[in-house]
Design a protein around this nucleic acid. Structure first.
Length: 651
RNA sequence: GCGCCCGUAGCUCAGCUGGAUAGAGCGAUUGGCUUCGAACCAAUAGGCCGGGGGUUCGAGUCCCUCCGGGCGCGCCA
């Protein structure tokens, strides 16, 4: 509701300023510093002051006089040095909220592609991957809430070095055949993704001590690329199995995908060759004949770097002198496909169906009709950590060099900082720290060293902790039910933890903080929603029906109740859910939704503590309190669903 | 060396395109459960917003510079 009236007023003011002063783009509204100043503040007089060479306060006075009465506004006041504070007509506003005016959102045309997760399918997922997936999934939920059509892609690099290393580990270090590995997969005592986690670390260590064995990797890569030999078969077994684990891990957090484009198909359907022809034809890349990059196809540094100094040393190699393409090259081809610019498509087959949602995976062979259309996005968000910003810049430069400026502008690197480990948590994990590391605020995780916290371990630990709390509070409830509740709490805690930090803040992961269920946490917000539901449930237990609020509460009644500043402020914050999501979308910051959810919960807990609902004797007030309770419940649930957090039946 | 990010309360972090008296959680101290279940609420203490210049009517926010920390900069991905 709030975002509607905000928009109305903002447009009205912009129109007036344009007509009266011939000035554009000055109508952004603000939240007043204090609630007592009103609901919205218009700082337009400050912006006009410079051009009109008049005091802001005088201009503000003039504008207020000229604007006259605004719909839904009870007063405009000049305040401070020249603010115009807006006071809304409370009864009307509440009536709009109650009748649900403007709550249905318009569909936004076009398709947005969000690519996230993208974990190398060679070992178990860790907390860094969780941040990626949770950020990406939440952003998707935000966009969908905002009315956007979103396609979720999870890119699978099943032919890369990381997979090759684990395959080499099985083949050379453990001398296991494909059949042996399949046997391992069937062994219920073996957690295959964990097994690979350790094996990958062992292989990395081995290569450090025996660099001559790096040929294993090259040979394996070669076999995988040409789909021949035992190791290619092994790679398929390993990567398919690990993808299964990754999807299962993410499913625990309510994260799903629409399509899994794989590098194997990018290779075999010759996506790169097509892109290569385009890049050559448009002279986006050139064949280097001298210097250290002699014999390579390179993209000039001027294409993706700010300073245009001619320095061929900084050029980015796209095709190596041995004629193989780099990762960035393949990524350019993939990005072109996402926009429907490649002139080629994958084939698709269903991978798996979970909760009625089918995930498709790319294949290189024609399939019976029935798969949806993928790709052809109007804008693309790549959720990738900030360490890869340089490569993302190169990809975007590739599009630009091909003349796809619009698509380049709509290729958004949705970057975020890494998840590291707090020194305290390293100690808990038994990781040895150097004296230097102990002084650092955080220590970087490393898959190669097998150093990190596995996603499923963390989730299990959270469930265990939550279960202790649930058991203590509800010993009479069935065990299976308690487990469900504990799982929902654990997921709420984890998702909120990953979302409460803004994207460019490094998270120093700390068990003690992540396992906290109090204060600014997911469980706090969940608990609040449970409280609201409990009131309504108690009402039903007494054999009472929820009143027909729209019939019982007319504008006059709402006006009477909302004369209370407390109630008015509560209604206001609860009505800002869509506003919060809009703001979070435009700033690209899921943390803003998390922050709002917490503030909403705080407001309700205040209300809960101060105003007993069921025992209220005044009829009108009781109905009003019930309405507030039900409205808060709905807004809390809606906001939590945007965050991907469930509300348990009890806590 | 070059590029990007960060520096705000004891700790962890917010602070929306520059705006009114800089906020929250944790921790500390104190108080509140016969209740719509305290995973909660209330109160108190705690700040030269890293330092210094500048732009502006106005700077935590923009520019410059210095200090401190992180991450990138491969014919790896």
């Amino acid at each position: 509701m709030f975002h509607l009236i905000e928009k109305q007023i903002s447009e009205r003011v912009a129109e007036h300023v344009r007509a009266r002063y011939n000035v554009e783009n000055v109508a952004a509204l603000e939240q007043p510093k204090q609630a007592s100043f009103g609901e919205l503040a218009i700082p337009v007089a400050f912006h006009l002051a410079r051009q009109l060479k008049q005091a802001p306060r005088a201009i503000a006075g003039q504008i207020v006089a000229d604007l006259g009465a605004l719909e839904g506004v009870s007063a405009l006041e000049v305040a401070g040095n020249g603010y115009i504070n807006v006071r809304l007509d409370r009864g009307r506003y509440a009536d709009g909220v109650l009748k649900g005016t403007g709550e249905s959102r318009e569909k936004v045309p076009g398709k947005i592609i969000v690519e996230h997760t993208n974990i190398n399918p060679n070992k178990a997922a860790h907390i860094g991957h969780l941040r990626n997936a949770i950020l990406g999934d939440t952003f998707v939920r935000m966009l969908r809430r905002g009315g956007c059509n979103v396609e979720v892609q999870n890119y699978i690099d099943n032919t890369g070095v990381q997979v090759a290393d684990v395959v080499a580990g099985f083949h050379f270090l453990e001398t296991k055949s494909a059949a042996d590995v399949e046997q391992l997969l069937r062994d219920p005592a073996v957690r295959f993704d964990y097994y690979c986690w350790d094996l990958y670390a062992r292989v990395s260590t081995h290569f450090n001590g025996h660099p001559e064995d790096l040929a294993w990797r090259l040979n394996t890569l070669h076999e995988i690329e040409h789909r021949t030999g035992d190791r290619a078969h092994l790679a398929a077994i390993v990567s398919n199995a690990i993808v299964g684990y990754h999807l299962a891990t993410m499913q625990r957090l309510g994260i799903q995908y629409d399509v899994l484009p794989r590098e194997s198909e990018i290779l075999h359907l010759k996506f790169w060759e097509t892109a290569f022809e385009q890049l050559k034809a448009r002279q986006a890349i050139y064949f280097e004949t001298e210097g250290k990059n002699k014999g390579c196809w390179v993209m000039p540094a001027s294409a993706f770097k700010e300073q245009t100094r001619e320095d061929t040393e900084d050029s980015k190699v796209i095709v190596r002198s041995n004629n193989t393409v780099t990762y960035v090259g393949k990524d350019i081809a993939y990005q072109l496909w996402k926009f429907g610019l490649l002139g080629k498509d994958f084939f698709y087959r269903p991978w798996k169906q979970v909760d009625g949602h089918t995930v498709y995976v790319s294949t290189s062979d024609p399939q019976p009709a029935g798969a949806p259309s993928f790709g052809h996005g109007d804008s693309v968000y790549n959720v990738i950590d900030s360490r890869q910003s340089y490569l993302q810049d190169v990809v975007v430069a590739g599009l630009r060099a091909l003349g796809y400026d619009q698509q380049a502008n709509r290729s958004i690197h949705f970057s975020y900082e890494m998840v590291a480990l707090s020194p305290r948590t390293c100690v808990e994990l038994g990781i040895e720290l150097s004296e230097e590391d102990k002084k650092r605020p955080y220590v970087e995780v490393s898959g190669r060293k097998g150093l990190g916290v596995k996603a499923d371990d963390l989730i299990d630990k959270l469930i265990e902790k939550a279960l202790e709390e649930v058991d203590a509070r509800h010993p009479e409830a069935p065990a299976a039910e308690r487990r469900t509740v504990a799982t929902q709490i654990a997921v709420g805690a984890l998702r909120y933890f990953m979302l409460k930090y803004t994207r460019n803040s490094v998270i120093a992961f700390d068990f003690q903080e992540a396992l906290s269920f109090e204060g600014e946490t997911g469980p706090y917000v969940q608990y609040t929603a449970v409280r609201a539901r409990n009131i309504l449930r108690k009402l039903a237990e007494r054999g009472e029906q929820l009143p027909d609020f729209a019939r019982e509460l007319d504008a006059a009644a709402l006006q009477r109740q909302l004369a209370s500043e407390d109630f008015w402020q509560l209604l206001l914050i609860a009505s800002k859910a869509d506003s919060a999501v809009d703001r979070a979308i435009s700033s690209g910051e899921p943390a803003h939704v998390a922050k709002y959810a917490f503030q909403l919960a705080q407001a309700f807990n205040n209300f809960y503590h101060g105003y007993p609902v069921l025992t209220e004797e005044n009829r009108e007030k009781r109905i009003f309190l019930l309405w507030m309770t039900d409205y808060f419940r709905a807004q809390l649930e809606q906001t939590l669903s945007v965050l991907g957090i469930f509300v348990p039946d009890y806590m």
